[in-house]
Design a protein around this nucleic acid. Structure first.
Lengths: 354, 354
DNA sequence: TTGAAAGCGCTAACAA
DNA sequence: TTGTTAGCGCTTTCAA
């Protein structure tokens, strides 16, 4: 690996000049520039990113914290993040917290500000204090899928109106004529999916439909979790005509449960989820769901992070003091609204049809 | 962010001493060590990884090149890589080549040797010349899932006997009594899955079962690809009793095709895949498949890469000249054999049963 | 338009 | 046991 000064020597200039032509800084004579470019080509020179990071006081990488890249939603999101980052000249370090706040903290402590210039947080179950602390230390943090646009957290975030998503799901079921409805909601402890559930319940209530306690199950965000919950629910309430799941994976699990219970979907039972992961399209029957703007949110998150990284340093101080400096980017960005995607897993309940 | 010398100043020593206590190098007096540790704690000091990388001439990150993190196999693999890397103190930069060799090259040129100390290649459709070049430049490269243990490439790799996987799949179908078999094989152009197919065909042939050209389709490694191929095949050969797919995703697609064609799986049609991705367990019916040691391969790949990174520099030269230096790690590692996992998508064909 | 020089934060000989 | 001294490869004033 050749270095700047080797290139400089070959071109008969100093490294400062080489640096200037490579970054289009300063004025460099055409003839000199050409000599430098030739030397760069001849030596196959490539800038040493770690060295540059040190000199600039800014690394070209961002950290993406996820709880487990194996959940099929995260790769889709990560893909979008990677694209957007790449376009802005940055690399993505993938940090699996594995739902463990301690693992998350370890990651933050090690790389925030030293190896990566910013961190994106995607449902990684991190300690908010840790996050605030890394922000206070000068490394921007962006939450990627905040579920309540109207109730922003104390950190910059991209918000998606998941309440609305729950509402849309409810309306769809109601319009089809369902009244015997049960719900499977993401793990209670994390309080995750609360907004989705609220939206769902409120829309039902507005239509005069009640959702008794016994019609609701909390389940892990997996196919198996949804499967188990759906079985319980269906056995407890055989008259059920529709299942709402606050996420696609449990919705898919519900379809499997119906299959095992010899209930035809959608003829005997409608199932609806939220998110629209790729699998939703590929299940049998394909899943009706409420699509969430994943790619858009990823792009917004990267661009917000970018702005936070690139803003002049004094504004950091202001942010830390609570106020917002003159040109500081707004700390909450709202992605477009979720939209209903009707596929094959929902239809009118039997007794109402034909 | 405080620096080493700030810590040093506070502890009344020089930065060299602080460095020594932090890395357990050199002998440091107990009393001094304690003072340093106190100062570190008081200042909340954390080492600057980019600076360290520069000084050591070695970055703590490795690059993971994948064609698209969205294919459900890759996240599972990436997860295992990340774990293994984390344990050896390294971070993973995720590089999506999106099947584009140019994108791959761009990644390699930018980060190999400057931001990451090694690269792991997972079916990223990279140009072999590019890979050899980055190796020649001194950055170790490891291929993660080489399909032919007996026919190693010119690069270090972890090999999995996919020929054997194909063979196991064939034997399973044969033992069940299937003779009307069709095959769906990964995209021809990339020559990928060739070993699996060979193993499959050879095992059939050894049993006196032929696989005519018209019984084989090449398809992209997706559910949709498998779906389309299976439909064609089943329409062309209605007497088919079993489908072999060289990967799980197309196998899942085949199950969907059977569903749409009103063919019961496994009663009317058996389906078998290769890999055993998580989804295989979660489909209806659950997919019979040949499990490939993903996690083991990931761990082997990371540890091979690690050894390559840590070997003394002179051996690089030797490797480049074709020979192998005295203590250079073997460049091919073979993971354990694939194993058949029988689930619900295969059974004896109708006419043979009972 | 170009060069000289300092320094980013850390490591690693080597001296003391 | 600790300090001194050079860098690692690059960027960035400031002078020339």
């Amino acid at each position: 690996m050749s270095t700047l000064s080797e290139v400089a020597a070959r071109a008969g200039v100093t490294s400062a000049t080489v640096s200037n032509v490579l970054r289009n800084r300063g004025r460099v004579g055409d003839e000199t520039r050409q000599r430098v470019l030739d030397a760069v080509a001849a030596l196959g020179y490539r800038p040493h990113l770690a060295a540059r990071a040190l000199a600039e006081g800014r690394a070209p990488t961002i950290a993406l914290m996820v709880s487990s890249i194996a959940n099929p939603f995260y790769p889709e999101f990560a893909l979008a993040v990677e694209r957007a980052a790449r376009i802005s000249g940055r690399f993505v370090i993938i940090c699996n917290t594995n739902q463990d706040p301690l693992a998350g903290r370890a990651y933050l402590e090690q790389i925030a500000g030293t190896l990566s210039e910013g961190v994106l947080v995607m449902n990684a179950n991190l300690d908010f204090d840790d996050l605030h602390q890394t922000e206070a230390r000068g490394t921007p943090v962006v939450l990627c899928m905040w579920e309540r646009p109207l109730d922003p957290p104390g950190l910059p975030c991209v918000a998606v109106d998941f309440r609305r998503a729950g509402e849309l799901a409810a309306r769809h079921l109601l319009e089809l004529g369902h009244r015997q409805i049960v719900a499977i909601v993401g793990s209670k402890r994390a309080g995750i999916h609360a907004a989705r559930y609220e939206g769902f319940v409120d829309a039902l209530r507005a239509a005069g439909v009640k959702l008794p306690r016994t019609c609701v199950r909390h389940a892990p965000d997996t196919i198996e979790g949804g499967y188990a919950a759906a079985r319980e629910l269906l056995e407890l309430h055989p008259a059920t005509t529709a299942i709402f799941a606050s996420n696609d994976l449990p919705a898919l699990g519900s379809i499997h449960a119906a299959f095992d219970l010899r209930r035809d979907v959608p003829a005997d039972l409608s199932v609806i989820g939220i998110t629209d992961i790729q699998l939703a399209r590929q299940s049998r029957p394909p899943l009706t769901t409420v699509q969430v703007p994943t790619v858009e949110a990823a792009e917004m998150a990267v661009s917000l992070l970018r702005e936070l990284i690139e803003r002049p340093p004094h504004t950091h101080q202001a942010a830390r003091r609570g106020g917002r400096a003159a040109h500081e980017p707004p700390r909450v960005r709202v992605a477009s609204e979720p939209t209903l995607i009707v596929r094959g897993s929902t239809s009118a309940p039997r007794r109402v049809r034909g």
